[in-house]
Design a protein around this nucleic acid. Structure first.
Lengths: 199, 199
DNA sequence: AGCCTTGATGTCAGCAACTGACATCGCTCG
DNA sequence: CGAGCGATGTCAGTTGCTGACATCAAGGCT
């Protein structure tokens, strides 16, 4: 195969490999998972469509699930927690963290997110991974709040609750008509918590 | 091998197989996971310690993780949701469901639960499965609340929040000194939510 | 210019999780 | 007493995933 040279050749600068192997793998994986289902897709299939080998897939992603979870959300959450103003209360900090997460998914990413979510919703193995990622946000929030001097009990409740609300907002964003962006829905979930826990 | 006949022989009634293969597998698995770690344990190891073969393991449990999650909690949650009094508010129903879950773990099971949790906490693959099980509770609550006529938005928030609070209570039960039972801690988490979301 | 290190990739062998197909054989029921 | 059932065993095969080693263009060093 000389596809690399073929394609890049006419541009002038010859790169040794086609660029963005990671991205190509992620794209190929989502397509294949959507076309034939996660279990009916083999890692070799994905690598093949991306013009790579199975071994290379595992150099970029730890396993067959991880390829759908490569986004920048964790970094955004960490940054928000790092930069949260000192005066804020615990729940407000959790809210800021989740709003930062929501920032990773602007309206234009909704088509992609919906396709991806359809695959995840059809695949328990992928749901597990998604839940673990979300849970890791709770751990980040918990750690940050404890570091801020919050009581451990408050820390944990706020951390878990914040993520729970983000999950609700995200589901509403995916299921809705696109009229509200994820940030707005996330704020709404935090507001609604007050009503629910009061009523 | 004639161990079955050997052991059971002296009792009189000869059963064809040693009883409770499922339970033996679960026990063997927890022991081995605790001794050498989840990844260092092979399914053949587990089956061997239980006096069975690998193939039989997979007839009792769908995969290597599931063997730690065979408890009756889902049934208890379903029953609680089925029998929740008609007058109760949404959050109260979620609370009842989680209290039912707590009922599966009386104080005398705490040593077992702690050992099991230590294994889970050391193993991301098992954390994923645990989170999926908990998430399934949220889905049960959501469905029950919607069937009761709650608004979908309220339903989802209450479902996710209830499970979030149970997670907090469970962690406190495992980490604490055993002075409070899980039911009490679960009630406490629901009470604390009011304080946190107000303050 | 010529060499050398580097880094992304390829190749290959191997283990372990899981599955389908078929065999075994006490027990139970008619 | 024979037939069928059901839990288990045996075996072969696919696939996820890993370690060890090879390749080879790019970029820096002399």
């Amino acid at each position: 195969m000389m596809t690399v040279a073929d394609i890049v050749g006419r541009i002038g600068r010859v790169a040794r490999w086609e660029p963005d192997a990671r991205g190509r793998l992620a794209e190929a994986a989502l397509e294949l998972y959507a076309e034939r289902g996660y279990e009916q897709t083999t890692v070799a299939d994905i690598a093949g469509r991306a013009g790579l080998t199975e071994r290379t897939f595992f150099r970029h992603y730890a396993d067959k699930r991880e390829v759908l979870f490569g986004g920048p959300m964790p970094e955004l959450v960490e940054a928000a927690l790092r930069e949260a103003p000192a005066g804020e209360g615990a729940l407000a900090v959790g809210r800021l963290a989740m709003l930062a997460a929501a920032g990773a998914l602007p309206p234009e990413r909704r088509p992609f997110a919906r396709k991806r979510q359809a695959v995840i919703d059809a695949t328990p193995a992928l749901q597990e991974r998604e839940l673990l990622k979300l849970d890791s946000f709770a751990r980040l929030i918990d750690r940050a709040l404890t570091a801020r001097g919050e009581e451990p009990a408050v820390s944990r409740i706020v951390a878990e609750t914040s993520v729970a609300l983000f999950k609700v907002a995200f589901a509403a964003w995916i299921d809705g008509d696109g009229g509200n962006d994820l940030t707005t829905l996330t704020e709404g979930a935090f507001v609604a918590l007050g009503r629910v826990s009061a009523g």
